[in-house]
Nucleic acid binder design. Structure first.
Lengths: 148, 148
DNA sequence: CGAATGTCTATAGAAATAGTAGAGTTACAC
DNA sequence: GTGTAACTCTACTATTTCTATAGACATTCG
C-alpha cells in the first residue's frame, strides 16, 4: 500500500498540472479541491519543492506551480520522494540499497529473484506514467464530449 | 516494501519444501537454518497453519510440514496472509476492498487507473510464482554440480 | 503598514512492526 | 504414567511510521 501522503502528493500535482503554467495555485485551493488537510498538504508541497518538482511564490498572489512539464513528472519519482524506495526488499532498492544480513549471498537468495521481477514490473509502470498521463483521460473525455 | 515477517514466512516455507514431505521440521531447526528469531517464527508458522498452508505435529518428534504441494503455494497467497492486501490502494484490493472516501467516483480517479496497472503487474508475478519455483534454481544448481 | 501567503520546526496520538515472555497443551520415549 | 521436548496461545513492549495539528516566522503585494 502506498501512503495517504503519497496519494495527496499525486493528487496535488494533478491540480497544478491542470492549472495555467504560470499561475500559482494556493495551498488552500488545492486542499479544498482535493479534500486534503491543509497543514498536511503544506508539508507535502514543501517536500516536493525541496526535491525540485514544484516551485512556489510567497506573499499575496502566491502559491505553487510545476517546475517542469507534467509529461516529465513520473509517478515513480513522486513515490520515491514521499514514500521512499519502490523496491519490495531493501536489497533490491536502487536509491536505498541495503544488504540483507539474514541471507547469505544475493545470487542464492530464493526470495530475491522473485521480488526482483516484481520490482521490475512495478518500475516499468510507475516510471512510464506521468502526471500528464493521469490527467489525460479527463481531457480526452472532455474532448469527446465537445465533439459529440 | 514487504515486512520482515513475510520474508521469514517465505524462507520458512522453502525449508519445509526442501524437507521430506512426511518428515516434520522443528521450529528450532528452521529458525537456526534461516536465522529467524524462534519465538517470532512460532507466531508466523501458527498463522500459516491457521490459514491451511502448513500442518504441525506436537510433542516429541513434532514439527511443521507443508499441507499441500510446494507447487501450489504461491508467493501472493503467503503475502496476503502475512502482510495483508497486495494492492497499493485500498480501493484496488480484492480481499480487503475499501472505497476511497477522498475521491469521488472510481471511474474518474486519476490515481486509481495507474495503480490498477501496478496491481495487475504485481499479481501476475506473485501468483504465478510458487515456493517450488523459489527452490528450483538451487536444485538445478545441485544437479548441474552432480552432472559435472 | 498590514494582510495574505508560504516556511519551518515541534509535537502528538494512533497504528504497525518486530520482537519477547511465559504459561499451557500434547505426544512420544522410557 | 511420568518427564520432557515439542507446539499453542495470549499478552506485553519498544520502536518506528503515519497522519496529522500547532504556532511562530518570513516574504510579498497592495
Amino acid at each position: 500500500m502506498i501512503t495517504q501522503k503519497a496519494k495527496y502528493a499525486l493528487r496535488a500535482l494533478t491540480v497544478l498540472a491542470d492549472a495555467d503554467a504560470d499561475e500559482p495555485v494556493m495551498i488552500s485551493d488545492i486542499a479544498a479541491q482535493q479534500k486534503i488537510p491543509k497543514k498536511f498538504l503544506e508539508q507535502i508541497l514543501l517536500d516536493l519543492k525541496h526535491h525540485g518538482v514544484v516551485a512556489s511564490r510567497r506573499g499575496k498572489q502566491g502559491g505553487y506551480l510545476l517546475l517542469k512539464p507534467a509529461q516529465t513528472i513520473t509517478f515513480g519519482e513522486i513515490l520515491r520522494i514521499i514514500d521512499g524506495p519502490i523496491a519490495p526488499l531493501p536489497c533490491l532498492s536502487i536509491t536505498a540499497y541495503r544488504r540483507c544480513d539474514d541471507c547469505d549471498g544475493e545470487q542464492n537468495c530464493q526470495i530475491r529473484h522473485v521480488f526482483a521481477k516484481v520490482a521490475d514490473a512495478t518500475r516499468k509502470v510507475l516510471f512510464s506514467t506521468t502526471i500528464a498521463d493521469a490527467i489525460a483521460p479527463k481531457h480526452s473525455a472532455e474532448v469527446t464530449r465537445l465533439l459529440a
